[in-house]
């Protein structure tokens, strides 16, 4: 067997096992008295993070190998809602605001954009954010904006010197998001990611997807 296929299969299996583990933990949480929840939550949060990491690896692997993430009509509001719901449990201290208008309709791979948003939210959490706002505008393409109140990007990241926030994460985050944006390039316009720090503190990331 080729090594790369083995890696692919192992990651895939990891992801499935983590999914089962998560389901079991959630089931346990629902049976255990509330006073003990604090003990179980770190386990749940770490499993969640592991699962996100494997999801990221798997997606990167796939994007390189196959490139067949089908695109379809999609609603950024829904995708953001979904990303928030899948991370809420992991980051109970973060207050989310989904300001993406419900009627904005776009065209992208929902799986990929969902993963990009989950990754961005995880990055924010690791940067100590307690508040995350998502918004979007549609103007010759779609721009999804995430703003947080964490400590913002290191100057080195903004200079493009390194692609990691190095706060316990795998370091794959921004790289993956760039890959996802590029995956949504049209023949003349590339999808892109822009990172900056807000004047009042906190980070801002804009994910731009051209009309496809």
């Amino acid at each position: 067997m080729k090594f790369e296929y083995m890696v692919g299969a192992v990651i895939h299996d990891l992801k499935n096992q983590l999914q089962t583990l998560l389901a079991c933990e959630q089931e346990a949480l629902s049976h255990i008295p509330e006073q003990y929840h604090d003990l179980l939550k770190p386990i749940l949060q770490n499993t969640n993070r592991l699962q996100n990491d494997t999801m990221q690896m798997m997606t990167l692997f796939r994007m390189e190998k196959e490139r067949d993430f089908p695109m379809d009509d999609a609603w950024p509001h829904d995708t953001a809602l979904d990303a928030i719901e899948s991370t809420q449990l992991q980051f109970p201290n973060i207050r989310f605001v989904n300001d993406i208008p419900e009627e904005i309709q776009a065209f992208y791979s929902e799986d990929l954009i969902h993963l990009a948003l989950v990754t961005l939210i995880t990055n924010s959490a690791q940067a100590g954010a307690t508040r995350i706002r998502l918004s979007a505008v549609q103007d010759n393409g779609l721009t999804i904006r995430l703003e947080d109140n964490g400590h913002g990007f290191d100057q080195s990241v903004l200079n493009g010197e390194q692609i990691t926030t190095k706060n316990g994460g795998s370091g794959l985050g921004l790289y993956l998001i760039r890959q996802i944006a590029e995956h949504h390039s049209s023949s003349d316009t590339a999808g892109k990611v822009r990172c900056s720090n807000l004047p009042k503190g906190g980070a801002e990331v804009c994910l731009f997807l051209p009309v496809l």
């Binding site: 999914q19 998560l22 389901a23 997606t59 796939r62 196959e66 067949d68 993430f69 089908p70 509001h77 829904d78 809602l81 979904d82 719901e85 899948s86 799986d111 969902h114």
Partner: peptide, 30 residues
């Protein structure tokens, strides 16, 4: 990912694909 699945014939495609784990908000919204 939906990409792993084999698509049916044109006339036999589902109305939507949902990726697990599903949350209630996501199901309702979709």
């Amino acid at each position: 990912n939906a990409a792993d699945m084999v698509m049916g014939a044109l006339e036999y495609e589902p109305d939507a694909y949902l990726t697990k784990p599903i949350t209630m908000g996501m199901l309702g919204q979709r």
